[in-house]
Design a protein around this nucleic acid. Structure first.
Lengths: 246, 246
DNA sequence: TCATTGATCTCGTCA
DNA sequence: TGACGAGGTCAATGA
């Protein structure tokens, strides 16, 4: 399953898009006007762009720069190609919320359908992986720490790690793989406060790769602690998959 | 400037990638193994995928579904294509943080360079637009409201709108274009508290398209108010661009 | 450069 | 389906 046409007619292009959209990744390059209307509204004047249409309904309108598409439609949308006044039109509709993207081609340089698959990503180093590693090696947070619970549900959200220190005092641990911001501090402060209102003797520790200056300021104000980690090293030390991926 | 090759040799493909990567959008389709190493690590087993390389250094590895690339490199990265053991290898390096993506092709189905441009997006309906509209028509928040300040800087972050009500009491307005979550409520509560500590008589109003149940609960607990808006209607009523885009 | 926040965020997960 | 939070988030903006 693979087809491509260079400089196709609008009719030919529409046919390739419609026959390929459920089977592979459709690529269309040409001069087009694009408009989006839904919760917000946007438009692009005539210009040469690259369209990707995926079998799950995803539509991406890419330009020459940036990682993000300028206009898009998420998975689950329905795409249709047809000819209007001699021009190729690609229309994508999403139902909830109701939103449409309309691409009108003034000229089509290229249309192709490629047999692209879907596979599993092996990944190491997510916040979940960091929490897992710290659970295996809690002494990297603090000597004598003993893990009591992981991903403990709260009123809203959840505590990453709940532990007891060498003196038997509870420790709430909030983990960020990268730079912790003031939001992380507020999050931790909320959890600590909730436990204290329940009458528990608790202190809070923020474990992260780094911390922003304002976050550090709030941290001190709230009487919380910061422990710096290197997520990559942490993975190397504690994770089996590490040898394969690092 | 446009070129494409079907079933090229590794040498031919490498040459097309290297000559096109600074001039247009390079598309490569083929069976490949992909690996990412940097702050985290990831890999994809052999499978057919679509690569996009942009002139600003962006690299995207797309599969058959989802809007996001499975593996990527952001703008500013450096891409190089070469032949290793008879295979096309595309390597992308980013300096800060140091991260690499390596794509090894077992076979190349297609390689092309497309002359895609970069243009300005006309957009209406961002949170900024909503704030702007509410500043023009503050009575849509509350009868008799008078705007005192917009985007007022705080210790951390800024208040969307600061106003005075008909009784001369200060009102802190936090705006969300979509569904407001508990985070928005906490944000507003912080601002209100800061003003009160300064001795001002202040109340807080959350203006959003909707509000989550838990956010509503916290809102009431903190004694804050919620005003529901329809950002689209708001645009239609107050914005000049609206007629063009909606 | 860093810090902060929005985003038509997207995506997974869990109730 | 909704809610919630992570993300190698990305990208724009202001300091």
């Amino acid at each position: 399953m693979y087809v491509h046409l260079v400089g196709p007619s609008a009719e030919e292009a529409a046919q390739v898009v419609n026959s390929g959209k459920r089977r592979g990744v459709v690529v269309v390059v040409g001069v087009c006007e694009v408009s989006y209307s839904g919760r917000a509204a946007a438009s692009l004047k005539a210009g040469r762009r690259l369209l990707l249409i995926k079998r799950d309904g995803t539509l991406l309108v890419h330009e020459a720069e940036k990682a993000q598409p300028k206009i898009w439609q998420p998975p689950g949308s329905s795409t249709a190609a047809y000819v209007e006044e001699g021009r190729l039109v690609v229309k994508s509709v999403r139902s909830r919320p109701f939103e449409t993207v309309r691409v009108v081609f003034l000229s089509v340089d290229f249309v192709g359908v490629f047999d692209v698959g879907e596979s599993e990503l092996e990944f190491l180093g997510s916040e979940r992986d960091v929490v897992e590693a710290l659970t295996q090696a809690p002494w990297l947070i603090e000597e004598g720490l003993e893990v009591v619970g992981v991903e403990v549900p709260m009123d809203v959200g959840h505590v990453d790690i709940l532990a007891k220190d060498r003196d038997g005092r509870y420790v709430v641990v909030e983990v960020k793989r990268d730079v912790a911001t003031h939001e992380a501090v507020f999050q931790l402060a909320r959890y600590v406060e909730i436990y204290r209102k329940k009458g528990l003797d608790v202190r809070g520790v923020l474990v992260a790769g780094d911390i922003s200056s304002s976050a550090l300021e709030y941290l001190r104000r709230y009487g919380l602690q910061f422990v710096k980690i290197n997520p990559r090293e942490l993975m190397a030390v504690t994770n089996k998959k590490a040898s394969k991926l690092l």
